[in-house]
């Protein structure tokens, strides 16, 4: 063995050789880089091709496309404000409902649950996220809506007749409504907000929590004193990313919101959202109408991107890496 090694030409074979091996090496690097850049390419293509197809509608309506309140394809009127309004209001309502529940579930899994209930808690959230949105929509329109209708009617007949309150809870009451859409949306964004909130709670140093408990804090005082202050940024990120998800949610909303382009403060009245109107009317549209619907897609894209970027920015500042699922 020794002799064999000694006879080897020292160093000659260290000179760069194996052109093929090196080529394979650098072409692999090229391929993976190209795959990564594909994300950029797709996003650019989304903006370019959709804007191009929507151009006739933007040209037709000008700035009125986003400020106009009349959407009437038969009259060639394309004012998208009622849809923007519907998207924002239904999403914000869902957010208000979902946030406390999500924080509660996150606290349950991370702090409150007995050890053997923790894993089932995680399963619960995963399962909630796994049910396809169209199934929630089906349930909403065939079961939840009809079930809630008499109660909603009662609220409209009592609280809805009081001054001031009538502006929000007043009738007439529809089977499909902004309220029902917000409820369904709530169920759909609880999982994402919960999982981000949990990740944030996980970053609270254990010794800070231990310190709070060692000072004689109750569990709630520990949560308020050690967990919440540490998680403020992360919770803002969770809210923004949940809002982004709610704004883009399509099918469930399309089934339960009522498809009525109007701006009203009454939550039991039917309304419409950007995603829902695209889903519900794209099939039978043509010409400028179709361009206008694609234009709605562009506006929706822009709005969700802004909200998501803000969410990611805050998330990054709070030290989290990703946006969860």
């Amino acid at each position: 063995m020794t002799a064999k090694l000694a006879e080897r030409p020292a160093g000659a074979d260290l000179v760069r050789s194996g052109i093929r091996a090196q080529a394979a090496n650098s072409s692999f690097a090229f391929v993976v880089r190209a795959a990564a850049v594909s994300v950029f390419v797709i996003l650019v293509l989304i903006v370019v091709t959709m804007t191009r197809e929507a151009w006739p509608a933007f040209w037709h309506s000008g700035l009125g496309f986003v400020t106009g309140t009349d959407w009437s394809p038969s009259a060639d009127l394309y004012g998208a404000l009622p849809f923007v309004y519907g998207t924002m209001v239904s999403s914000l309502m869902a957010l208000v409902l979902a946030l406390p529940v999500s924080i509660g579930i996150a606290l349950f899994i991370n702090e409150y649950a007995p050890r053997r209930l923790r894993a089932p808690g995680v399963y619960l959230v995963d399962l909630l996220a796994a049910i396809p949105s169209v199934v929630y929509g089906l349930w909403g329109v065939l079961v939840l809506g009809p079930f809630l209708l008499p109660y909603v009617q009662k609220v409209a007949d009592t609280i809805g007749t009081w001054p001031v309150f009538s502006a929000v809870f007043g009738g007439p009451v529809g089977l499909k409504s902004m309220f029902l859409a917000a409820l369904i949306l709530t169920i759909m964004i609880v999982p994402i907000i919960t999982s981000i909130t949990r990740e944030v709670f996980d970053t609270v140093p254990a010794d800070q929590k231990a310190a709070a408990v060692a000072l004689g804090a109750t569990r709630w005082e520990m949560v308020r004193g050690a967990v919440f202050p540490h998680s403020r940024n992360g919770m803002v990120a969770a809210v923004l990313l949940g809002l982004g998800r709610a704004m883009g949610e399509t099918i469930a909303v399309a089934l339960v919101i009522g498809s009525t382009a109007q701006i009203t403060t009454r939550i039991f009245a039917p309304a419409d959202s950007m995603a829902a109107v695209i889903a519900n009317t794209f099939g039978e549209s043509s010409g400028v109408n179709r361009a206008a619907l694609i234009g709605l897609g562009v506006v929706l894209f822009a709005m969700t991107i802004v909200v998501n970027m803000a969410g990611q920015f805050v998330a990054r500042r709070s030290g989290r890496k990703g946006a969860g699922t």
């Binding site: 989304i46 959709m50 969700t304 991107i305 990611q312």
Partner: peptide
């Protein structure tokens, strides 16, 4: 991350166009 947030209906419109 941005792409994760693109609404699914927008992806449908994109592939349509």
């Amino acid at each position: 991350g941005v792409m994760t947030g693109v609404p699914s209906i927008v992806m449908g419109l994109f592939v349509y166009t």
